[in-house]
């Protein structure tokens, strides 16, 4: 975006400054992928989770790591494998012989930021253990419920091509993720920088936490209070309505998805240093929010991403 409305930040000026710094730090490591970084922060500030689908080696993990480093708080990385069990994620109750009691040993899920690498390698049962925890913000093991820390942000990655021995996330579970995105190959310029500049991994180590859990919660609240004007609401409504009436889709977006769209558009506006929501925010978010919640009719031969692009293409901006 070459132009932005006047950045007259009156509300939460220091929070905004922190966010600014955090963005700058991540952008320093993840070169030329500002859009993806913005999306990631939007998912975080909208209180949702992020799924990154891309080939190995394009920087999924680097992005996730950079995010978790910058956000501060506790973070955990889980590399999924097919022999992993739900307990490996959630934790286990251990019987302690000395006092004849079960002791809960929290799994890696008990952290502010979880980097769930190659989630499709885990068995469906393990996947759904994580997804349920994401949805509910709590974990129940052996009849005991344990709350997860706040904020709680999951960045999952998935390799769409290497399918052998994997279990792609089922359609019905995908909407646990607020946004689904991909990184894409670097541009020629960026690639050159990657070749010339020091190793990304080493750069990661230079990252300092710019935020902490309290500030993230403050930013989430700030985002939730951003102004969304009637025309933007109209736009959102028209988009959602278009998914419901599209002949090539089995069902349209739910009201919950519409609410998520508004929430994420607000967060995106905050990330972009705006004081109010613009149609651009909606337009940027929608292609990452809608497709994985929509199922095209098998016989229509359509891809839900194409359908969503078509809908945006045909929806006038009020």
């Amino acid at each position: 975006m070459s132009s932005r409305p006047d950045p007259a930040h009156t509300v939460g000026a220091d929070l905004r400054a922190d966010l600014e710094r955090a963005l700058a730090s991540v952008n320093a490591v993840i070169v030329d992928k500002a859009e993806v970084v913005e999306l990631a922060f939007s998912a975080l500030l909208a209180g949702g989770h992020l799924l990154i689908e891309d080939l190995p080696g394009v920087g999924k993990t680097t992005l996730a790591q950079a995010l978790s480093l910058v956000l501060g708080g506790s973070w955990q990385r889980v590399q999924f494998t097919n022999d992993m069990l739900p307990a490996d994620i959630l934790g286990v109750s251990i019987f302690r012989r000395q006092d004849e009691q079960f002791e809960f040993r929290p799994g890696p899920v008990f952290a502010n930021v979880i980097l769930a690498d190659e989630i499709n390698r885990a068995s469906p049962r393990t996947q759904s253990a994580l997804l349920e925890a994401m949805a509910e913000g709590q974990v129940t093991v052996d009849g005991q419920t344990h709350s997860l820390p706040q904020p709680f942000f999951v960045i999952a990655t998935q390799n769409p091509l290497d399918l052998a021995g994997t279990y792609p996330l089922p359609d019905s579970q995908l909407d646990r993720f607020l946004l689904r995105t991909s990184i894409g190959y670097p541009s020629a310029l960026e690639e050159r920088r990657l070749l010339v500049e020091p190793d990304r991994r080493r750069m990661l180590q230079t990252l300092q936490p710019e935020l902490d859990e309290h500030r993230v919660i403050g930013l989430i609240e700030l985002a939730a209070g951003l102004h969304v004007a009637e025309p933007v609401l109209d736009y959102i409504q028209t988009l959602v309505q278009a998914t419901r009436s599209h002949a090539g889709l089995r069902a349209g977006l739910s009201p919950r998805a519409a609410l998520a769209l508004i929430r994420t558009a607000r967060a995106h506006a905050l990330v972009r240093r705006q004081d109010f929501c613009l149609p651009e925010n909606v337009k940027q978010i929608f292609p990452h929010l809608a497709p994985h919640r929509l199922q095209p009719l098998p016989e229509s031969g359509l891809d839900s991403r194409a359908v969503v692009a078509e809908i945006i293409e045909h929806t006038p901006v009020p």
Binding site: P5, H227, P231, V232, F276, P279
Partner: peptide
């Protein structure tokens, strides 16, 4: 940009 501020802003 001004139009956006008026039209979409508060």
């Amino acid at each position: 940009a001004t139009y956006c501020r008026i039209h979409y802003g508060d």
